[in-house]
Structures are given as C-alpha cells and as structure tokens.
Amino acid sequence: MWVLVLFDLPTETRKDRQVATRFRKSLLDDGFSMFQFSIYMRFCASRENADVHARRVKKSLPKHGKVCIMQITDKQFGMIELFHGQKEIEPEKPSQQLELF
C-alpha cells in the first residue's frame, strides 16, 4: 500500500509558513518522502500499517488549509506515468523496508 498526502496550506504570514513547515516536517519524521512540493508519499507493507500512518497524519493536521490522505495499492502506484517536461521518467522503486516482529 502507498499512502499519499496532498495538501494546500496557506503561506501568507510568517506564522502560516511555520505551521506548513511543521506539518511537512511531521510527514518526513513519519517516513514520508516528498513526491512533489505539496505531495508526500510513504510505502506501507499492509493496509493496517497504512491506516496507522494515516491516523498519525490526522493528528498533525493544521487548523487551516486543505489536506487529502489517499491510500492506493502498489499495483495502482506502479501504473503511474511520470514526466519531466515532455520526457517520460521511470518512477523510483520503493526502498526495501525491514520489519521486526
């Protein structure tokens, strides 16, 4: 499973920028990586694990702005088409993640 967090947060004031930065940092601290500036993604081994990370994101939601949490399967993510300008690029493979029981 992949968890994608898409957001549009206000950045007009210094306080707004601090809140947006804190939210992005919380995503990075939870293992998300930046896909685009306001889209972060994280690979999860199972739906249950994806739900855990979605709940963590919900706990750090800012008061203002829009945030979308989306969960998609690895197969769906594998069908993504990425372009840099008009040149198609290969999506990055997820890093191997070890799980200890």
Rank of each mutant, 00 (worst) to 15 (best):
D16K: 01
D29E: 15
V57M: 03
E48A: 09
D30G: 00
F83D: 08
P62S: 03
D30M: 06
A54E: 11
D74V: 08
P91A: 11
Q71M: 15
D74H: 12
R22M: 09
R42Q: 06
L9R: 03
G85W: 13
M1E: 04
N49P: 00
I69F: 01
V5N: 02
L98N: 09
V5E: 04
K87L: 11
E88M: 14
L82A: 07
A45Q: 15
K58I: 07
F83E: 05
K93C: 09
Q97W: 04
D29L: 10
S33M: 13
E12Y: 02
R22S: 15
H84A: 08
L28S: 13
V67R: 03
S60M: 10
T21I: 00
F101M: 12
L27M: 08
R47T: 10
K59D: 06
K87R: 09
D74S: 13
E81A: 07
K25V: 10
V19D: 12
R55I: 05
R56F: 05
L4T: 03
P91L: 08
T21Q: 15
Q76D: 09
R24T: 02
I89H: 05
K66M: 03
V19R: 12
K66D: 11
H53L: 01
G31H: 07
S46L: 08
E90F: 07
C44L: 09
V57I: 05
E90T: 10
D16Y: 04
T13A: 12
E48L: 08
K93M: 13
V19L: 08
V57E: 01
M34V: 07
Y40Q: 03
V19W: 00
V57Q: 00
I39D: 00
K75Q: 09
L9F: 03
R24K: 15
D8W: 00
P10G: 10
E12F: 00
F32M: 12
K15D: 15
T73C: 13
D51G: 07
F77K: 04
